[in-house]
Design a protein around this nucleic acid. Sequence first.
DNA 1: ATACCGACCTGTCAGC
DNA 2: TGCTGACAGGTCGGTA
Length: 275
Amino acid sequence: MPELPEVETVARSADRHVRGDTIVSAWFSSHKEPFKTDPDEMAAALPGWRIAGVRRVGKHIVADLESATEKGEPHNSARQLLIHLGMTGRLLVSSAEAPLAPHTHAVLGLASGRELRFVDPRRFGRLALLTTPFQGPGHEPLTISKSEFAALFRGRKLSIKAALLNQSLLHGVGNIYADESLFRAGIRPTRKAGRLTREHLDRLHSALRSILKSAIRAGGSSVSDYVDADGERGFFQIQHRVYMRTGQPCRVCGTPIRRIVLAGRGTHFCPHCQT
DNA sequence: ATACCGACCTGTCAGC
DNA sequence: TGCTGACAGGTCGGTA
């Protein structure tokens, strides 16, 4: 589900509601998949920590935790709660009275009476408690320079689409924004990453940045069920030009949008505008 | 090292 | 009304 703009939206809305709140209880489901840290360990460790803030790194959500004990109590081990939403994960802030959604895997009770809940039907999402600062796997698409961006693809034989999806190069780009940015840059997704000219890559760099920023302003893309921490849908999907528009006319030239499978993912492009 | 592909899960929708 | 298969915003581990 969630790519950079959706994760950014979720992190911001969660931050608004839980910053400064203190964790008083922690419950986890009995499914094993979502937990990279043992749930019993997290349930024992989390209560008592104050949430200093919630932010995004790549497609990860990081909740920075600080000791809620009185100052003067030197607390060496800063902690972070790390959340990845996978395909269908939701991070929700709700009142403790709100009924639990099906597929709820984590509930953190907060001192304010609110709850931070993690819901994930497909269980591709992940939760972990870290004692060392989280480092994303790749570069941030919104801050990388044009020359660093171009250098990422030098000598690579894989398609530019597959390269954009590779989180250890750029982190945060997923299937929607890979297809949409390639359309706006006029580049065929099948082109080999290492064969693109610097001009191509500069265009892709700008297209990607501007599309990610617009999508964040729109609250992300809600294709089926994505919502932010308030349960609100995004509306960037109305600006999609190729993603999930197979057979429909290109909004620029009218040619039917084509769908192929590339890097194991549905890939959408205009055969006329993208060369 | 790089690149590809199936596996991991549930839900939904189209076609029979 | 089922049933089956394809597909969905992502990553990981095994294999070539």
